[in-house]
């Protein structure tokens, strides 16, 4: 752990709760690198999370932090950002958190385009509750509630975010520190709603239940099931394999964010209230 990371950690709250080999630590490290590189004012960063293993990240992060309820982190963040627009608000969610119970808030946040950065630690399973099926569990994969293989179709969160209108949409993996840092910096700097889907490894449940081996072998699994979108396009122009998840930046478009539009509207009507 370098000093750059140490200054953003609540050392008294360590050790963290994550299992050995869990990908969450790598993601948090990349996030702290990104925040350090961007030179953000530590006092003016808010990290807001939902409930789950991913949701435990804020406990150890030395910013203004809020651990909310399952699925609702984006709604809490919406209130926080609207009343305190100078804060940099970063939202951390699990995949079930963001797309099952919190799916409604997720799509509406994409659509509304408030200036928030949303990171999903996507391990394709429910970690905290002991390995149940998630909306992101790939077809055929086992979980404690799909012991003979998942018969549902998985959500592709990138396509969901694109369809719902997010201005910045990217996917990376906890395997690729450099790419995570780059994407996190771009997402945080993006004015408007920015979403990064971070594919990650849960060795304790996803790995074990699907016979994927040791944590390092799970990293290989992540490497082998994802591919830069350009490569997929080049190599499989007809029909890319369904289980190959493209990585990269899928959209980066500046559009006027909700906060700016709201203040313009407020200015235009100021003093026109009825009392």
């Amino acid at each position: 752990m370098s000093d750059q990371h140490r200054r953003f950690l609540r050392l008294r709250q360590l050790p963290h709760v994550w299992c050995p080999g869990c990908g969450n630590g790598s993601i948090v490290k990349a996030l702290l690198t990104a925040i350090g590189d961007l030179g953000l004012d530590q006092d003016r960063v808010a990290v807001i999370s939902g409930i789950g293993c991913a949701g435990r990240a804020p406990f150890i992060l030395d910013f203004n932090t809020m651990h909310t309820t399952h699925g609702r982190a984006l709604a809490f963040a919406t209130g926080m950002k609207l009343v305190n627009p100078d804060l940099k608000v970063i939202v951390i969610m699990g995949d079930g958190d963001a797309s099952a119970i919190g799916g409604n808030h997720f799509i509406h946040s994409c659509r509304r385009n408030l200036d928030l950065t949303a990171l999903v630690f996507n391990n394709g399973i429910y970690g905290l509750t002991g390995g149940q099926l998630a909306p992101t569990t790939p077809a055929g994969k086992r979980s404690t509630t799909s012991m003979s293989g998942n018969i549902e179709h998985a959500f592709d969160l990138v396509r969901l975010a694109l369809g719902a209108g997010a201005g910045f949409v990217a996917r990376t993996t906890s395997y690729d520190n450099k790419q995570m840092v780059t994407f996190f910096k771009r997402a945080i700097s993006h004015k408007g709603f920015a979403f990064v889907d971070v594919m990650t490894a849960c060795p304790t449940y996803f790995g074990r239940m699907n016979d994927l081996g040791e944590p390092y072998e799970l990293l290989h699994y992540l490497r082998d099931t994802t591919s830069p979108s350009e490569d997929i396009a080049r190599e499989h122009d007809e029909s890319p394999p369904a289980d190959l998840m493209p990585t990269g930046i899928f959209r980066d478009e500046e559009r006027r964010d909700y906060g700016t539009l709201y203040s313009q509207r407020a200015l235009a009507t100021s003093g026109k209230g009825r009392s």
Partner: peptide, 26 residues
Amino acid sequence: PAQGRVFIQMEDEIASISAIIGGAWG
């Protein structure tokens, strides 16, 4: 808005209560 205060219509009541709690801490 006319009085420089913030109003938002959320996607449901769960979002509404969550947003006001976030707003209070803001």
